[in-house]
Design a protein around this nucleic acid. Structure first.
Length: 306
RNA sequence: GGUACCAUAGCUCAGUUGGUAGAGCAACGGACUGAAAAUCCGUGAGUCCGUGGUUCAAAUCCACGUGGUACCA
């Protein structure tokens, strides 16, 4: 491990909004520090979802050196992946990297995933339980919501928007009290957190330009190929690019509508990411902010001397 | 050139018989523990095209001007 990082740092985190240039910076950091990248991206886990997720694997190649990366391309498109899966996979990979004497570098734009690691969220194992679900079958959504409220504090509305989520939330809630700590937890670790960002105006400009580029580079063809094996509704479930490009591919919206709506949706997403990262800092996680306009070597210096 | 219609928030438009304005979208801020690229909450903003006139009072009625749209020559 490199002496530039403070003694005891066992995880380096690089977060930031979409289109901020995380992969390039992460790759150079990993090369300099002898590190390996762990992706914190809820969509790049899927194979075949590349342009749409901004999966720029070429950025992980610097000259003839390829930075090792993890939690990318681990599932076929169409499957489900969740916070729980991520946290479990992260722990496995993290320990593996450490056992080989390398520095893990968590890099990605999914704020919830990143924070679940930094805060060491306690996520008990909660398998789907058909018997338990059957026992709730006669109760209304309203009754189930009340039941859930009596078991755990509600985080927001999202657990109660539909029955499927309600049942799942109840299943999880009833497992929570029985386990004090997750088994073989790697938390808490000593992490250094860096967030790469641009001001709102250039952020939007970069997103729009990148969208045009990706459309020209075959993003539509990527979605068409995915639609051969994945149902439209399952692909749209992934949101953003996959939602709007699917709607375009199945003829529900025009090209212009697709471009404009998607562009706006990505802008809004990037804004939400920034809200999350600011909140993360407010919630007590020390953050170093890295302005995106800086040249690469200055960004590296800034991080390596922090 | 003539006739008709239109001109209100960044955009698309509402605005009853005259009482100094409002929705949706966008923008901005926030929340967030098993879908998180999801889901949800909140906020601001307008010389109501211009100038005159009628009136206690005009986005609203009248005249003229400007710009746009459609049709007729």
């Amino acid at each position: 491990m490199n002496d530039a990082m403070p003694i005891g740092t066992d995880l380096l985190v690089l977060a930031g909004h979409t289109a901020a240039g995380k992969p390039t910076l992460a790759a150079h950091l990993a090369k300099v520090l002898g590190g390996e990248i762990i992706s914190a991206d809820s969509r790049q886990v899927y194979r075949g979802m590349d342009l749409g997720t901004g999966k720029d694997l070429v950025d992980y190649r610097i000259g003839d050196f390829t930075v090792p990366y993890h939690l990318i391309d681990i599932l076929p498109a169409g499957q489900r992946y969740s916070l729980y899966d991520f946290q479990r996979d992260f722990q496995t990979v993290y320990q593996d990297i450490h056992s080989r004497g390398k520095l893990p570098l968590l890099c990605g734009g999914t704020g919830l995933y990143t924070e679940s690691v930094l805060k060491g969220y306690f996520l008990p194992d909660a398998p789907v339980d058909p018997e338990f679900r059957l026992s709730l079958a006669k109760q209304s959504d309203g009754e189930l919501t009340e039941l859930l409220k009596s078991m755990v504090p509600l985080h927001n509305q999202s657990d109660t928007t539909d029955r499927e989520r309600l049942l799942r939330a109840l299943e999880i809630a009833r497992n929570a009290p029985f386990r004090e700590h997750p088994v073989a937890s790697v938390f808490p670790m000593k992490a250094q957190v860096f967030i790469l960002f641009f001001d709102a105006e250039s952020r939007r400009k970069r997103i729009t330009e990148r969208l045009s580029q990706r459309l020209e580079s075959g993003m539509i063809e990527e979605v068409q190929a995915l639609l051969k094996t994945v149902k439209p509704e399952d692909l749209m479930y992934y949101g953003l690019e996959y939602k709007y490009l699917t709607l375009y591919c199945i003829g529900k919206i025009s090209y212009e509508e697709m471009f404009n709506s998607l562009n706006t949706a990505i802008h809004q997403f990037a804004k939400r990411q920034m809200t999350w990262f600011r909140g993360m800092e407010r919630r007590g996680i020390p953050v170093h902010w890295i302005p995106g306009e800086l040249p690469l070597n200055e960004k590296l210096d800034l991080i390596l001397t922090s």
